[in-house]
Design a protein around this nucleic acid. Structure first.
Length: 514
RNA sequence: GCGAAAGUAGCUCAGGGGUAGAGCAUCACCUUGCCAAGGUGGAGGUCGUGGGUUCAAAUCCCAUCUUUCGCUCCA
């Protein structure tokens, strides 16, 4: 555990020191759980996004991309269930310091009463034997009726109070029912507070005419509401997918662990529209496909695992996470969810517009089912970055800090270094930079001993160092050094482009998925 | 949100009532020239922020912000 903490600390400080991630508004003491991507981080993040986009959109005939707005019509979030599901009434017990959902406490209480009814039923069934009629017993036994009445009145009061957002009454209810904290056993409760996980804002200049809006808490809904537009204008035939990357916002109660859980974050997701009944096979297909994508980056199969959900969200009929071994343990990196027709149906209901597909094979219309793959770009960034950071013991008893980023994702593909800062070597090196920068993000460095420059590039994840020496002036060859092996070979300047391209090309890496 | 720990230079940290230090990094120059840590010089901090105690606060007290960990929550 101490090692894990150490490694995580190193990741955070390395990310700052080498210009990958800064805390937002740092000069004002920062803003909780908000981070900025710095000069190198933005390149890495962009490369991850591109790698995903190529794999998901460009390589699939039947998947197209969109970029929906962050603002959406407020009804969207009613339809999606976020208005209800994303806002929890919470209450703390002052003695045990435990936090509970107030409505769950009350519901649990009702559950206990229900258990009492069950007991009555059991007792009665023993007593009456074969003559026992459960239905009749439930509707006539005075004790059972009393219990049931109590449950009904509690739940209806709870429902009404929640509807009116009368949180004081919810607390009162908890007090009247004499509900104890399961841990401390006390009834020393705080007030009930409403937590809404969506960020609100206003559309419109004047207060009276302004409309309440939310910043989207997920990007998926932008795809669902555009489903028919894309299908028609793109002449898409089921099965087909719509992909999107973009920011989403959640007002997390607890947002922590560096960029793992942020209040503003970026998702990369794809909604795949399919014929009802085929969701099982597509679920398996996308689980496998997405795992292959991860494995293609060569970050170690042992660092990934599936986690199948037992408790499913309200929209899903199957769901699994791809978990990655972060410095703080295995955590969710990507979700693959079989969302059924929940979203499209909900939008049909709330908008009154049909969101159906006419299948010419069946000669019938239906609301498609949806299979979702959704990955957090920031989490992927953290996975790549933390996995890449290693400290190596070298033979000469020195240590080397290397950021072993997959070459396809590295911010800089090569550093061009003149062996010395004289004899015209910098000019030759700069000429190489001028030539290569059309194809790759490259950098130039002439400061300090070349060995130190190598280490500097190692720590920044640059896969290649190209060194111009005195022989270069004679025969137009340079040395090219590989970051991970530290091995060097002598190559012609004119061959540099093809050598680098082979190693850093998206194609080279994505082919590993096959 | 509760509890614990922490916040001093870009990074890692020392100091602990008498107005700031180290290593590395960074910048300039010199030297060297294929795997970091030669030389000289420079820049960089009102010790997270705000209050209080004191003749005097980075140091003691209170509040607050931020971070990490535990609880809690998590589409």
């Amino acid at each position: 555990m101490a090692n894990q903490d150490d490694q995580f600390k190193k990741v955070i400080s390395h990310a700052k020191e080498y210009g990958y991630v800064f805390q937002s508004s740092e000069i004002y003491d920062g803003l909780s759980a908000v981070y900025d991507y710095a000069q190198n981080g933005v390149e890495l993040k962009k490369n991850i996004r591109d790698y995903w986009w190529k794999a998901m959109v460009q390589m699939h005939d039947n998947i197209v991309g969109i970029d929906a707005a962050i603002f959406m019509h407020p009804t969207t979030w009613k339809a999606s269930g976020h208005v209800d599901a994303f806002s929890d009434p919470l209450i703390d017990n002052k003695d045990s310091k435990k936090r509970y959902r107030a409505d769950v406490l009350v519901e649990d209480y009702c559950l206990k009463i229900e258990n009492k009814i069950e007991k009555e039923v059991k007792k009665a069934s023993k007593r009456f034997g074969d003559a026992f009629n459960k239905e009749e017993f439930l509707s006539t036994n005075p004790r059972v009726l009393g219990y049931q009445e109590k449950i009904d009145s509690i739940l209806s009061r709870l429902g009404k109070s929640l509807e009116k957002e009368d949180l004081a009454d919810v607390k009162l209810l908890i007090e009247e029912l004499e509900i104890n904290c399961p841990v401390s056993g006390s009834r020393n409760w705080t007030d009930v507070k409403q937590f809404n996980l969506m960020f609100g804002t206003k559309l419109g200049a004047s207060a009276e005419s302004a409309m309440d809006l939310y910043l989207r808490p997920e990007t998926a809904q932008g795809i669902f509401v555009n489903f028919l537009n894309v299908q028609k204008t793109g002449r898409m035939k089921i099965p087909f997918g719509i992909a999107q990357t973009g920011k989403a916002f959640r007002n997390e109660i607890v947002a922590r662990q560096f960029i793992f859980r942020m209040r503003e974050f970026e998702q990369m997701e794809m909604q795949f529209f399919i014929k009802p009944g085929t969701q099982g096979e597509w679920y398996e297909h996308w689980k496998e496909t997405r795992m292959k994508w991860h494995l293609s980056l060569g970050m170690g199969a042992e660092n990934y695992r599936f986690h199948d959900h037992e408790k499913l969200a309200h929209y899903a009929d199957a769901a699994a996470d791809i978990e990655f071994k972060f410095p703080f343990g295995f955590k969710e990196l990507e979700g693959i969810h079989s969302r059924t027709d929940f979203d499209l149906k909900a939008h049909e209901e709330h908008s009154g517009k049909k969101l159906q597909y006419f299948d010419h094979e069946d000669n019938a219309s239906y609301t498609p089912y949806v299979l979702e793959t959704s990955i957090g770009l920031d989490r992927m960034f953290l996975a790549v970055f933390s996995n890449a950071l290693v400290e190596e013991e070298l033979e000469n008893n020195t240590t080397r800090t290397v950021l072993k980023l997959p070459a396809v994702l590295a911010p800089f593909k090569a550093a061009i270094l003149p062996l010395v800062k004289k004899d015209g070597l910098p000019d030759v090196a700069k000429k190489i930079v001028e030539d290569l920068k059309w194809d790759f993000n490259v950098t130039y460095d002439e400061k300090d001993a070349v060995g130190r420059r190598y280490r500097r590039q190692d720590a920044n994840g640059t896969p290649f160092c190209i060194t111009v020496d005195h022989d270069t002036l004679e025969d137009n060859t340079v040395t090219i050094r590989h970051r991970d092996t530290m091995e060097q070979s002598r190559v012609k300047i004119e061959d540099l482009k093809s050598i680098i391209k082979k190693e850093v090309d998206v194609k080279t890496w994505l082919m590993k998925m096959k």
